[in-house]
Design a protein around this nucleic acid. Structure first.
Lengths: 134, 134
DNA sequence: GTCTATGCAAAGAGTTTGCAGATGT
DNA sequence: ACATCTGCAAACTCTTTGCATAGAC
């Protein structure tokens, strides 16, 4: 995959690396538009897909609405807050993840190459809010 | 949620319970149309969503294309074959799943209520095909 | 009789794509 | 110079929705 430098792509990466918000393509678009007012959504999608293909970022598919993107390449999982919709990170010990992966392989007749997990729950902020209202 | 009987819904459930193919809404539509030629895709979607809400079936969200549906209510996971696109089932011991769930809770500041996992890999059939071609 | 479900068609959200021109190397 | 990237707009896929009628209870 040959990939030329582009200022737009650079800006998209910079943004994704600076945030922990797991933005959607549309949110990325809004942000990058501050610097490149004429950028198009199509360009944003093309770059997000390109970056996903080369492994520079990760695509998070949630059952509701648009995909989200994450430039954090460390091994971690995501928690979707069913109250506010935010996606936050969860770190699990590598060895434990490996154990789980192995367990999956043992229970499957084919080959397992990867897995993606989405946890559902309530984030800390929403829990605090709930306590205050009660 | 009040739900009246309908022959169309009955047919959808019957189909989902008879297959292990994890069909998409469109596939369900094609099938049910054999019995109800005038059924509309909208009705299929409305019923699939209704059944998902009451927990009668499960919706499987994959990063590629349409959602799939599964009437198998036993606790199990799904493997998406990156070669043929088929989704197959994987059973993991309940106690192991509970361990993993607990592990996740320990590593998160909020509350975890559920999780969905999608494994990626190569299904048995595709592995066999690969061996034969080499 | 009343409320839910249906068929139809139109609309909606999210994403992809064809094209001509601009940009990177 | 040539290949990639961009902006624009149109198209596409999947899903939802408004409405009038049919069906369940």
């Amino acid at each position: 995959m040959i990939m030329k430098y582009s200022r737009q792509r650079e800006c998209i990466i910079r943004y994704l690396e600076s945030t922990t918000e797991h933005p959607t393509a549309d949110t990325v678009y809004s942000y990058v538009r501050q610097e490149f007012p004429r950028i198009s959504l199509g360009t944003v999608y093309r770059n997000l897909n390109l970056l996903t293909e080369v492994g520079e970022i990760k695509k998070i598919t949630a059952p509701d609405g648009a995909d989200r993107f994450d430039a954090d390449k460390s091994r971690h999982y995501h928690v979707l807050c069913t109250s506010c919709g935010k996606v936050s990170d969860m770190m699990i010990d590598d060895s434990k993840i490996n154990d789980f992966h192995r367990l999956a392989e043992e229970n499957y007749s084919g080959t397992i190459s990867a897995h993606s997990i989405l946890f559902y729950g309530t984030c800390r902020d929403c829990e605090i809010k709930k306590t205050q209202t009660n």
